[in-house]
Nucleic acid binder design. Structure first.
Lengths: 332, 332
DNA sequence: ACCTCGCTTTAAAGCGCTTTAAGAACTCCT
DNA sequence: AGGAGTTCTTAAAGCGCTTTAAAGCGAGGT
């Protein structure tokens, strides 16, 4: 049941040294074509698979990227998928470490460090910049999704203000002028989006209206009820995230307010939620694949190409127009 | 930047052998209280952390549990969280391996095997039983969430028929008799739920009506539209999963059919979706924490207690009653 | 004194693979 | 032929930790 074949078994089977087998299996130069072939055949026959643990230990370089994530965050899930394929391409393994009830960010990071990951990719960390700084002294770090201005960490994120700006431009184009913003709470990301809204409204010569919110459907529902009841209702709402947007839409519809007939709604994240046929939410897409690609590249350029200077990659999000936005009803 | 202290550094710093340090750090019996203290102090001072890779290699036992999951499945996310805490308690590490675009179930499993995990926990695998059989010959396997009758793998799942039965009992109790079932498609799990529905309806002397569906909101929307338009509409619908249920509700509400006034809806999974205030869906809870606990225990009893006989743990799900169900309107 | 018996400590042998420097076997020149 | 080059192969030294058998060392017993 146990006893998987070892490198030396393959070597013995072929009649060459373990060294040769190791070289062949990793495609390293040296072994002749004939040796290669025989080793490969033997390995296949014995069903040999290298012990990752031993390889990792023996190799000078570990070629291991540690990823900290929250397994319950769908956006992280999307990122992880892409990180994997990108790491693969760059010749790296990925070790996942998720936050859990009894494993906070520090704990998750330590697990990664214990595996001697060569670099860390942190998805939307909440740690204060100072602790990131300390961490970055030990190992290259890439923060995905949020700012980290003063630390020695690389950052890959999306230009939140631009995203919000695109949403507003779309609405203004349609003829809206009373456009409210549904806030995403206290996080750094939410702040950036709020700021983007204020600026863009200001530039357009429109007056801003920010409604309190968070990052749950419930928050959206509360705001939606309020909107439905108010007399001087805006004709459009930009939400700081999709869940909020879904909540708003739901509350409006239940209150008999047509979307997009009477109120247009725009979300942010272009999550799978937004794409659902019956939700069909106009939303801002952050291009997870590109973020993942860049995060891996940032790590790899530090490790393989000796880059030492901090890098910050800001991607430009784009608006995906769907059915939750339309021209406002002409007023009488 | 690099060069983390090694075990030998700590040993040298204290003036004892590496062996002693190793023993102290793992809390093994032997070292005297004084040595213990000094080693611990030195380790703390140097900021020493053991290299997991080396430990794993040197240790005869790996104490590593491999978990295969789909990082995009929210139910898996919930399970992973619990698996972690449970593994921790049993003194095991967890290695995660997720399915990705270019990494199918076999690929994910091989990664786990390459780390020499001592046992595998497979969350809702789709592989045919035969390949599970082969896998189980190499390493203890625990399948979570679906049946795997003839294989030598352990199974932890929830009694789907019982769950559906509870939903029906609740509806019948409320006075419903025309209760339709919204099917979950072709999977093994969906089949079990459908069967549970048929049996329970039969037992209750009611006639069954199965509507086609899948595992998406869209499927639910389609069914909901159809229901809304039909003259002889059932007074209640049990859906094979929450996403379907949400879709149905959405379509019914938009078509002006009140839920639960005119039609009661029950979901399955008790996902976070169901718990949302504005959805407030009566649903069947599968107790993810218990499933996780049992999966880890199954693995651990095989590894640590030498259990050799196959085990199948079937948990009893329970209904969580919320606002989407009510007594049917009395007919005229 | 001599032995035995616990309690500590440690030398040394791995774990399974990678890597490097040196060796073996050939080929090619002059 | 002899030496310089090539090409392929391998012995041996790790990677950083764990484990085990054996060595030290006082204390207690006779």
């Amino acid at each position: 049941m146990d006893q998987r074949p070892r490198l030396s078994d393959v070597a013995a089977h072929v009649g060459v040294s373990p060294a040769s087998v190791s070289l062949v299996l990793r495609g390293a130069p040296g072994p002749s074509a004939e040796t290669r072939e025989r080793v490969l055949a033997a390995a296949a026959e014995l069903g040999y698979r290298a012990d990752r643990t031993a390889s990792l230990l023996a190799r000078r370089r570990r070629h291991l990227l540690g990823v900290m994530l929250d397994v319950r965050n769908p956006f992280h899930a999307e990122l992880v998928e892409e990180l994997h394929v990108e790491a693969d391409r760059a010749g790296y393994e990925v070790v996942l470490s998720t936050l859990t009830r009894n494993r906070d960010e520090d704990g998750a990071v330590e697990t990664l460090l214990d595996f001697r990951c060569e670099a860390l990719i942190l998805l939307g960390p909440d740690s204060p910049g100072s602790s990131l700084d300390k961490l970055a002294e030990q190992v290259p770090c890439v923060v995905v999704g949020r700012m980290a201005r003063d630390a020695q960490v690389d950052v890959v994120r999306s230009a939140d203000d631009v995203g919000v700006g695109a949403a507003l431009a779309h609405l203004i184009d349609l003829g809206h002028s009373r456009i409210a913003f549904l806030d995403g709470g206290s996080g750094a990301v939410a702040a950036a989006r709020r700021r983007g809204y204020r600026r863009a409204m200001h530039r357009a010569g429109l007056s801003a209206q920010v409604l309190p919110g968070d990052h749950t459907e419930e928050g959206g529902v509360r705001a939606g009820r309020q909107l439905a009841a108010s007399a001087e209702r805006p004709t459009a709402v930009v939400a700081s995230n999709d869940r909020l947007a879904v909540g708003v839409m739901d509350a409006l519809l239940r209150a008999g307010v047509d979307v997009p007939g009477e109120v247009s709604v725009v979300g942010y994240d272009d999550s799978t939620l937004a794409r659902l046929a019956h939700i069909d939410l106009t939303s801002v897409n952050q291009d997870a694949p590109a973020q993942a690609r860049n995060a891996v590249r940032a790590a790899v350029t530090r490790l393989d190409e000796g880059r030492a200077r901090r890098t910050e990659i800001v991607l430009v999000p784009h608006l995906v127009v769907r059915g939750s936005t339309a021209a406002p009803v002409s007023r009488t």
